[in-house]
Simulated scan of single mutants.
Amino acid sequence: MAETFTVSVTLTTDYDGNETTDYDYSGSGDDESSFMCDRTSARVFRGVYEPPLFCIIFLVGAIGNLLVVWIYTTVRHRLKTMTDVYLLNLAVADLLFLCTLPVWAVDAIKGWDFGVALCKTVSALYKINFFSSMLLLTCISVDRYIAIVQVTKAQNLKKKRLFYSKLVCIGVWLISTLLSLPEFIFAKVKPDHHNKSFCTLVYWNNENNRTKILVLSLQICMGFCLPLLVMIFCYTVIIRTLLQARNFEKHKALRVVFAVVFVFVLSQLPLNSLLIMEAAQATNTTITQCNMQIGIDKAGQVARSLAYTHACLNPLLYVFIGVRFRQDLLKMVKLCARGLNKDGLSKTQTPPKRSSAMSDTDTTPALSI
């Protein structure tokens, strides 16, 4: 007699987008009446892989971004350019993002014991700062385009640009908050089959999973596609302008541009490729290949960890490669080493001025060496 099976599918997604679907198979087979896809191996992998890596990302990223905030609030005292405003907000966003990693590390080890309210809050906070970081990187590339390609206009509108940058940052935080609403709405504490609970996203069970597909599409577009397209356009024009410039160490600046784009693509492309695959899978709720799903779970955990390293690399790529920041950092080191007070910092020798055509103060803090 032929075997017949029915498939019951529960669609959930964990805090960072990993689908945690459990497939229950029941039928009239002679040897087995029911079967369940056991994804314990993926969760064990997560419990071993994520906590130590998250701790490293947290420590390295916290040190770098705290130094950025310290320099802006202690050494410089005020924000002079649009990029200064964006970099300070980027450091704050990265710090808030990093603060969620220890919570997820505990969740990976022992499950979620913090309640539904904190599950929703931490999930939303994580997404707010993830999207704000990506959008602020986009704003930095636009500002560099204006400062290098539209030099005359940038100088004429210098004061207004600083005001506009603050409005843009407010808009970035508002947009990021709106994009994080799905996390706040769908985040729930879901028990598994081993007496553990996890903070996951449980989407509405509507036709063709429209809700999940819409959420993933917005995340892909706003968290990767839009920033990547803007960065490619801006930095392509910047490269062409630098190649035509005179009396400037263009080759060093070009290496910085390539490093910025390369690191962004390297860290974000794997994650968004998996999100695209997950959105495609959401249109088909009859997936029955358990081993493939477990493999996707593990690949997603690695891809997300790679994306998180951007919080560590942002201070290096966008701040410490600048001459001005290196000088300010050296001042801080000397201040701490000599035990000088805050007033002693202003008495340190001012470094010689560089060419005004590409100075850090007015144009390229993110491109100078």
Rank of each mutant, 00 (worst) to 15 (best):
M1D: 15
T6R: 09
D16Y: 15
N18T: 08
Y23D: 05
S26I: 08
S26E: 14
S26Y: 09
S26D: 05
G29P: 02
D31H: 09
S33L: 15
M36D: 14
S41N: 11
R43N: 05
V44W: 14
R46K: 12
Y49S: 02
P52G: 01
L66W: 13
Y72H: 12
M82C: 11
A91F: 02
A93C: 02
L95Q: 00
L95H: 00
V103H: 11
W104S: 04
V106N: 13
G111K: 01
A117G: 10
C119Y: 00
K120S: 03
L125C: 08
K127T: 10
K127M: 14
I128P: 01
M134Q: 07
M134F: 03
T138D: 00
V142Q: 13
I148L: 10
I148W: 10
I148T: 09
T152H: 12
K153Q: 13
K159R: 08
L162E: 12
Y164P: 04
S165L: 00
T177A: 15
P182C: 00
K188N: 07
K190E: 08
P191Y: 00
F198Y: 01
L201H: 03
N208S: 11
K212I: 02
I213A: 08
L214K: 15
Q219H: 12
I220N: 06
V230I: 14
I239H: 15
R240I: 13
A245Q: 06
L254N: 02
R255Y: 10
F262V: 03
F264I: 00
Q268W: 05
P270V: 11
L271Q: 02
L271D: 01
N272E: 08
L274E: 03
L275Q: 12
M277C: 10
A280S: 14
T286D: 08
Q289R: 10
A307T: 03
Y308E: 05
P315W: 02
Y318P: 07
Y318T: 14
V319G: 08
F320T: 00
F320S: 04
G322N: 02
G322T: 02
K331S: 06
M332T: 10
C336A: 15
S346D: 07
S346H: 13
T348S: 11
T350G: 09
K353M: 04
S355K: 13
S355G: 11
S356D: 12
M358K: 15
P365Q: 03
